[in-house]
Nucleic acid binder design. Structure first.
Lengths: 161, 161
DNA sequence: AATGGTTATCTTGATAATCGAGATAAAATC
DNA sequence: GATTTTATCTCGATTATCAAGATAACCATT
């Protein structure tokens, strides 16, 4: 293998490890933030999921979070009580319960992430447009990979470990 | 503001949001993985912390994880029982208990992340060395930011919310 | 329209992770 | 040497989660 190729492999390995470290910090950050907001880690996680997906059913929430149906019911109870979401019966299929995020509360959550977002934008402002385009493509790429890996794990779980 | 500048600001905002989405998926991934491995989310998180820090005291673990001292004791009990760590009395300060990760088990954890790491490296192999250098610098940059934000949250917590 | 089977959510009792306050013991400070 | 602080552990209470079963709506077949 060429010297150039080896160098690149090394960089890829380096990148993979750095990304892993970053991921760990993200997990810690979310947990710290939940604690600051006075909610359980699961609750913040769920609010964030709903923020991205919009209204979904309890079943979908169960699948995404990996919680049992019973836990999801309790989870929704908590989120409803604290005003983050509301239950809405689906008129199409009346067994279904749609979980709808409440805008006002969602905004309050986002406010907590402002500091992080600003720091990120600030730090990345040193990159020029071409570099930013590369970085953005990278983040979107690894996001897709995460989606794929998560899908694999969810399917495994459904087929009984 | 110039048209160019506006475009860049938009890209930065876009990047920040994409990164947030990626973070959410990382959190879900770790939770899914913990479930697959049959351990509590906290336990995997702790094992990963120890993997990076090396041996630390119970107190430091309490600070990093945000758990109470009582919970940390129980946490270490679980990790010790399942062979992930061992307690070691610090001879310098005999109140202290050092938590030392056990290599063999740590490796077993890493094995679970191989699929993700390979997929990441594969996907990023399309970038050339210059691009990879930019991306790597970016990841290291946002990791530092996360460290800083986490430190802020930990200090807030210690000063009673 | 009746039946049986599947799907979606909720209910309930049990388990266990976490908290919080207090106990113990070692170190640091005066 | 006495007091205060620090580090961990112990233990009872709380609560998030699970697992299994109940309920109710949908769907397909007859």
């Amino acid at each position: 293998m060429s010297r150039d190729k080896l160098q690149k492999l090394e960089m890829l390995e380096n990148l993979s490890q750095s990304l892993h470290k970053y991921g760990m910090r993200t997990v810690l950050f979310q947990q710290n933030m939940a604690q600051k907001m006075g909610v359980v880690h699961t609750d913040l996680k769920t609010a964030e999921i709903l923020n991205e997906t919009g209204p979904i059913t309890a079943g979908e929430l169960s699948r995404i979070t990996g919680l049992s149906s019973g836990s999801v019911t309790a989870l929704i109870d908590r989120l409803e009580k604290t005003g983050y979401v509301m239950r809405e019966k689906d008129e199409e299929d009346r067994r279904r319960v749609m979980i709808t995020p409440i805008q006002k509360r969602q905004q309050q959550i986002k406010d907590h992430f402002v500091s992080l977002a600003e720091a990120t934008k600030e730090a990345c402002s040193t990159y020029n447009k071409e570099e930013l385009a590369v970085i953005l493509s990278f983040v979107e790429k690894v996001t897709k990979i995460m989606d794929h890996e998560n899908e694999k794990l969810m399917v495994e779980r459904e087929n009984g470990n």
